[in-house]
Nucleic acid binder design. Structure first.
Length: 514
RNA sequence: GGGCGCGUAGCUCAAUUGGCAGAGCAACUGACUCUUAAUCAGUAGGUUGUAGGUUCGAUUCCUACCGCGCUCACCA
């Protein structure tokens, strides 16, 4: 029998003994007067004399994270909401039965205690326990108390243990929640309406990505998990919701990596009667507020670097300017802004960049705009540490964006970069149904050329636009990546509670409860 | 998919050139009525990821497989 199974059986035996002491083994509830954080906040400032002068009785619950037995007395630390409070259990105070119960407790058990607050000889705020109520047993041994749980796979697979053992992990997810709350509050305050649109799409649209496929039996139809809510949200602007947003999951059937999880959380917002600049300001405002709400300041740690999110530190430059600005010295003289218009000069730029040792994919048959975007990623993205807005994207890779009136090869589209990651993408929404149809047709050509991620035709979406969509700016914000930036987490799996893992291989049979 | 690395007790980690598989925590027994990495005495816990190979002898070297991590590619 493996050791953990031995412990499991042993602790089940202890449960029976606890029951024999008259305690319910899995009681339904526990009435408490304080949480541990409340006690710490209110009484940590009090001196031993103050606590003695006016006795403070408390009933408090928690999980045992440390326990020390010394003959006829003992100490333990209870943990609740990531914080710990010491309890002092003396046989004289809890009686024989109470102390028998105490001796049957293990690390990880949940208990409730009532008693009064005092300070120990060494000054630690503690509960002088008068009665213990057993609440639930931990049948499996917790990880080691010094080093905790560090095995990366185990941390993700058994996040519940990770959260018990690693307060810093808990803190990350608390901050993630604060982030989402802040974003909602900001948009709600600007008159945006939060909505829910379908997760299952007949046509996977609104982004360029490979979808997951599923099937509905009764209707006998294949459906795609959504890769973006975009086209549904814009249908709502047609329907008269002038400011809408949705915060929810998208699914993309692509590789995993430090910035990619197959399901991820996106905030998408649409604002009627404004353009890409309007939604850019809305987005920047929301992010600045979120940084303040989550971290309490405008500067955040990012590895060895510091990100400064204060308004004046944000840079704005066009994609073409960014390529010039970050042009590698080894690739020779900087290009001219006019070099990005045609295949030949762009091809020459690709050759020069490759000659400088920069990895860059190139397909002579792809639209020139796509090559320029790749060029941008190759030379500029790695430099975009501080918050930076890159704007004016090639039309070829922006099938849902409005073109610039004076330069139809370029669109009114931007992306926010920070920490060398793209965290948001917004544009003036294309609302001309004829233009949209020809853009989709262009994408279909790309699909024929072999790009199986090119956007599909969506006739109903064209029909919706044909009823008239107001001018609007729209944006998508990668909530997970923003959470990474605000918590100094360098892999997306550290900000997703249960990231996608390979299915656990069936191990030896678990201890069974007959 | 390519490259690099890792896999030893429940957890965190050792093991010299290929030579008896170890420690701390957790667990068990006992002592201890202000401890806090409690202490003290004792006990138990291992198919060294799996399967082969080389060798007198393999945790150690080789091969394959499985799993995990990092990285590159893919993912606008």
């Amino acid at each position: 029998m493996a050791l953990d199974e031995q412990i499991y059986e042993l602790r089940r035996e202890k449960l029976k003994q606890i029951e024999a002491l008259g305690q319910a083994t899995y009681p339904s509830k526990y009435e408490f007067t304080h949480t541990i954080p409340q006690i710490l906040a209110e009484f940590l400032p009090k001196t031993a004399e103050e606590l003695e002068a006016s006795r403070v009785n408390v009933r408090v619950a928690g999980r045992i994270m440390a326990i020390r037995l010394m003959g006829k007395a003992g100490f333990a630390h209870l943990q609740q909401d990531g914080q710990r409070l010491q309890i002092y259990v003396k046989k004289d105070a809890v009686g024989d039965q109470g102390f028998d119960l105490y001796k049957l407790l293990d690390l990880g058990d949940h208990i409730g205690v009532n008693g009064y607050l005092f300070r120990t000889r060494t000054g630690e705020l503690s509960v002088h326990v008068e009665a213990i109520t057993f609440l639930a047993k931990d049948l499996l041994p917790l990880p080691e108390k010094w080093h905790g749980l560090t095995d990366v796979e185990l941390r993700y697979r058994q996040r519940y243990v990770d959260l018990v053992m690693n307060p810093a992990v808990r803190e990350v997810f608390v901050k993630r929640t604060r982030l989402v709350q802040s974003l909602r509050r900001y948009l709600d305050g600007q008159g945006f309406l939060e909505v829910e649109t379908p997760m299952m799409h007949a046509i996977a649209g609104g982004a360029v990505a490979r979808p997951f496929v599923t099937h509905h039996n009764t209707l006998d139809m294949d459906l795609f998990l959504r890769i973006a809510p975009e086209l549904y949200l814009k249908r709502l602007t047609v329907g008269g919701f002038d400011r809408v947003y949705e915060i929810n999951r998208n699914f993309r059937n692509e590789g995993l990596g430090w910035r990619w999880n197959p399901e991820f959380t996106m905030l998408e917002a649409y604002q009627a009667y404004t353009d890409y600049l309007g939604i850019m300001n809305t987005t920047q405002g929301a992010i600045e507020q979120a940084v303040l709400d989550v971290t309490g300041g405008m500067k955040t740690k990012w590895g060895d670097e510091e990100l400064d999110w204060s308004h004046d530190n944000w840079r704005r430059m066009t994609m073409r300017e960014a390529i010039l600005h970050f042009w590698p010295d080894a690739a020779g003289a900087k290009p001219e802004i006019t070099d990005f218009a045609a295949h030949e000069p762009v091809k020459a730029l690709v050759a020069r960049v490759r000659g400088a040792g920069v990895h860059l994919k190139y397909d002579a048959a792809e639209p020139v705009g796509k090559t320029v975007a790749n060029l941008f990623e190759a030379v500029a993205e790695e430099h975009l540490l501080q918050p930076t807005i890159i704007y004016e994207f090639p039309t070829a890779i922006s099938p849902l964006s409005k073109q610039k009136p004076d330069e139809p090869d370029w669109t009114e589209r931007w992306e926010i970069y920070a920490g060398k990651m793209e965290i948001a993408n917004g544009f003036s929404e294309l609302n001309d149904p004829e233009d949209q149809r020809s853009r989709f047709e262009g994408q279909l050509k790309e699909r024929e050329r072999g790009d199986d991620e090119a956007h599909q035709m969506d006739e109903d979406y064209i029909r919706a636009l044909s009823y008239g969509m107001p001018p609007a700016g729209g944006v998508g914000v990668g909530v997970d990546r923003l959470a990474m930036l605000l918590t100094d987490s360098h892999t997306i799996r550290d900000v997703i509670l249960f990231p996608l893992l390979r299915a656990e291989k069936p191990g030896p049979p678990e201890p069974t409860n007959p």
